[in-house]
Structure formats: structure tokens, C-alpha cells
């Protein structure tokens, strides 16, 4: 079996050997990049600069929470608010692969800029096995371009360090537990963020909708899991489907968007079973979303697709 202590023992000296000068890490606040940052920080101390980019597609209160995490880890960090730039770049973009490529490329350009200012030569990324497996290349078919693999521009000038490349999520969590990182049980969140949880153009207005819906789904499912009503899923969130349907609010006709509830069970994200959410919990989520977002959302659906044939995220 995978041994997290041994992995840490082996990885730190390798990082020390490879990274002679300064390194930069793309810090999202998720399990992968946090474990990566903690390892590289152990290896080279404050020669590591953590950069967090607020793309505007983060979840509710997430930018503030990530800032706090970087403080707690005593990282040497930069916080870049690029939300306006991202919204502008994704204006009119509907194709999921285009969204991923644009977001990936922008990430790299921002990191390159900080890298130039800080004179770093290494880019550290929390890429894990399913990321590069699904990104295709060689014989493999591209299922999705993960932002940290397929989105990499060909003329990138930084050297790449990916210490978690051969690990799966459950193994990364084991490493996180050994390092006593609070983030170890956090659910995965994709790099392109809420942009790929909005089918169609990810406008700021639609982002607000899906952000609010995701927050309700997360809170209600976490509450239900804590109360023992259901097993905590591997991943759980809302997807905005900008298809309008007719509803009735009071005696008035309503015509609003649709939100899909997605929750899956998995060990490594390579195969997933949709989570069985008790009807009472679905009911609470449905009522909360439609009541708090009544002008915009008046229909809730529950996604019962496994992977395969589906993937966890819709785009």
C-alpha cells in the first residue's frame, strides 16, 4: 500500500535537489496544491512563493478563506484579484474546452508575470494522476483539458515541478493527514472553478447564481452528513443550466433557470457512483434554492449519472 511517510521522506530531498533558486506555486487552496505547497515549503522555505489567483469563479467566501490558509501555513504569498480580467476574457465563450483553455492560459500568464518579478525559475503544480491521464496526449483521447495540463501554453518559459504526479486523491489526502493539514478532507474543486458549472456563457450574473446555489447545496449536504442522514459524498455542488422553464410563484407566472444537484461517491475520481441523497435533503435544497433565488431559478433537477458514462463536472 501507499506509504505517506515514505513518500514525504523521498520527495523533500528531491525537491531540494531540483529547485536551486526560487519556485512559484499555483495555490488554489484545494487539497492538491496545499499539500504541494506544504511539501515544497518544507524543502526550500520562503524561496517558495505561493500565488493565489481570484478568477471571479471561486465559491462563496473562498478568496478570503484561501488567504487565511496561506497565512496559517506561513507561506510567502501573493494574492492576485483578476476577476474582471477573467470575466472579460470569457465574454461570449460557451464551449467548455475553450473555457478551460482560456482559463489555463491566463493562469500561466499571471504566474509568468509574478515569476519575472520574483526571478523564479520553477513552477510547482499540484497535478495528480487523473489530471494528466484525462488530458490525453500520445495515444490517449482527450476527455477534458485540465487547466494545469492541457491549458499549458507551448511557449511556457518556466520549468515544471509536479511532486504529486503519480498520486491519486485518496493518497494525497493521506499525505495531508500526515502533515496535519486541515484541508485534508476538503472536497475537490476544479481549477476553472464555477465557470465550468455554468452551461453556456459564464457571465458575472450567472456566476452569482451558481455561487449561491453551490453554497446552499454544500451547506445542506454537509449538515445532512453530520446528522448521519447520508454518507458524505466525494464531491457535491450545483450546476446552472440556463434553460428556462415555466413555474408559478403565488398567482404569478414565473419563467426562470434550472439548477442541477450533483453529488458523487468515489475513491479516486476515475469511476464514480452518483450519491443517494435522501429525499428530505433534496427537498430542503430545492426549497431553499427556489425560495432564495426565486426571480432567477424556479426548477431543480437531480443528476443520477455515474462515471462512466458521465464525468463528475458537467464540462
Amino acid at each position: 500500500m501507499f506509504n505517506a511517510e515514505k513518500f514525504i521522506e523521498k520527495t523533500i530531498p528531491n525537491l531540494q535537489k531540483d529547485i536551486q533558486r526560487k519556485a512559484l506555486i499555483a495555490f488554489s487552496g484545494g487539497v492538491d496544491s496545499t499539500v504541494c505547497a506544504a511539501l515544497v515549503n518544507k524543502a526550500i522555505g520562503d524561496r517558495l512563493i505561493a500565488v493565489h489567483v481570484n478568477t471571479g469563479y471561486m465559491r462563496k467566501n473562498e478568496p478570503e478563506q484561501v488567504k487565511q490558509m496561506m497565512e496559517d501555513l506561513s507561506l510567502n504569498y501573493r494574492f492576485v484579484d483578476a476577476s474582471k480580467e477573467y470575466y472579460a476574457a470569457l465574454k461570449g465563450v460557451e464551449d467548455p474546452e475553450k473555457k478551460r483553455k482560456i482559463i489555463g492560459e491566463k493562469f500561466i500568464r499571471i504566474f509568468e508575470k509574478v515569476a519575472r518579478e520574483e526571478k523564479v525559475d520553477y513552477l510547482v503544480q499540484g497535478t495528480i494522476a487523473p489530471d494528466w491521464i484525462e488530458s490525453g496526449g500520445g495515444l490517449r483521447d482527450t476527455i477534458k483539458s485540465h487547466h494545469n495540463v492541457g491549458g499549458l501554453p507551448k511557449d511556457m518559459k518556466l520549468k515544471l515541478a509536479e511532486p504529486l504526479r503519480d498520486l491519486y486523491k485518496d493518497e494525497v489526502r493521506k499525505v495531508a493527514r500526515v502533515l496535519h493539514l486541515k484541508v485534508s478532507e476538503r472536497q475537490p474543486f476544479p481549477g476553472p472553478g464555477l465557470a465550468i458549472r455554468i452551461i453556456g456563457e459564464p457571465t458575472p450574473e450567472r456566476t452569482e447564481l451558481v455561487r449561491e446555489a453551490c453554497d446552499i447545496v454544500e451547506k445542506e449536504i454537509e449538515r445532512a452528513s453530520e446528522q448521519g442522514l447520508m454518507e458524505r459524498p466525494w464531491q457535491y455542488f450545483a450546476v446552472l443550466i440556463p434553460i428556462k422553464t415555466v413555474g408559478v410563484h403565488g398567482d404569478k407566472r414565473a419563467y426562470g433557470n434550472t439548477i442541477a444537484i450533483r453529488a458523487v461517491q468515489s475513491v479516486d475520481a476515475m469511476t464514480c457512483h452518483y450519491s443517494t441523497i435522501p429525499h428530505e435533503v433534496l427537498d430542503t435544497i430545492s426549497t431553499k434554492i427556489t425560495n432564495t433565488m426565486k426571480e432567477k431559478v424556479n426548477r431543480i433537477v437531480y443528476d443520477v449519472t455515474n462515471k462512466p458514462p458521465g464525468t463528475v463536472e458537467w464540462e
Binding site: 494522476a129 491521464i133 495515444l139 490517449r140 483521447d141 479516486d268 476515475m270
Partner: peptide, 27 residues
Amino acid sequence: IDNGGQWTHREWRTLRDLEVQTKIVPN
């Protein structure tokens, strides 16, 4: 032997977890 499947890495992992000396090699 890697024929380009989505789960090649899973085969490697299952073998590794069962204490097998294993490696992914191109076909």
C-alpha cells in the same frame, strides 16, 4: 503495456498496491 486507455494508471496502481514490482511501458 500502455495502449492509451483512461485507466492504464489504475492498473498500475492496483498492481503496486498489491506489492507487485510494476511499471507502465509503451506498447
